[in-house]
């Protein structure tokens, strides 16, 4: 627990797909708006969320509960869940691109911020972004691949902040 009265939140972002890009950036930007201090530790596939140009995608393959909704057309059609068999989702070229486009369009229609917007807010409002040095080495990322202001560290860096934090989440 923090002593200063300021609440702290420590997040681990371990996934890099479009759907999983949202939770860490939503929680971090909102926590700062609630006067909390936030650090996000990006590791494994989460490192991709630090890239200068975000290109997070979503795939319905191996994601069986993901509803595919049409972002346009009559309301009844928009509310209809299209079940996507894995054989289609995993094998048809361009399917992932289509799923990504549909999700982005639907989010926009529903007044949801883009991941880029949320990340910008996090950076502007002082969320500390830490890249995991070990997984950067493993996946071949360099600090130049990332947006400005990213710090590098390891497990000890995260744990030191997490030990003082009121909220710790692994995403």
């Amino acid at each position: 627990m923090s002593d200063s009265g300021t609440k702290k939140m420590a997040l681990i972002a371990s996934r890099g797909t479009l759907d999983w890009a949202y939770p860490p950036f939503i929680l971090a930007s909102t926590a700062v708006a609630m006067d909390m201090e936030v650090q996000i530790f990006f590791t494994f596939y989460g490192l991709a969320l630090l890239k200068k140009k975000l290109d997070a995608k979503v795939s319905p393959a191996s994601n069986p509960s993901m509803p595919m909704k049409m972002p346009f057309g009559p309301k009844a059609l928009q509310n209809f869940d299209m079940p996507i068999p894995n054989i289609l989702a995993g094998n048809v070229p361009g399917f992932e691109g289509m799923a990504t486009t549909l999700m982005k369009k639907t989010f926009k229609n529903k007044g949801v911020a883009t991941v880029e917007q949320l990340r910008d807010i996090c950076v502007e409002s002082g969320v500390k972004l830490v890249g995991c040095q070990m997984t950067m080495d493993v996946f071949g990322f360099s600090k130049d691949d990332f947006i400005d202001g990213v710090e590098l560290g390891g497990a000890a860096t995260f744990l030191e902040f997490a030990a003082e934090s009121d909220i710790q989440l692994f995403v």
Binding site: I26, S29, T30, A33, M34, K110, G111, V112, A113, L118, I121
Partner: peptide
């Protein structure tokens, strides 16, 4: 109006 979580909170702040 028309905005979804967390934008109303972020804009209010």
């Amino acid at each position: 109006r028309g905005l979804n979580c967390p934008l109303p909170i972020l804009k209010t702040k």
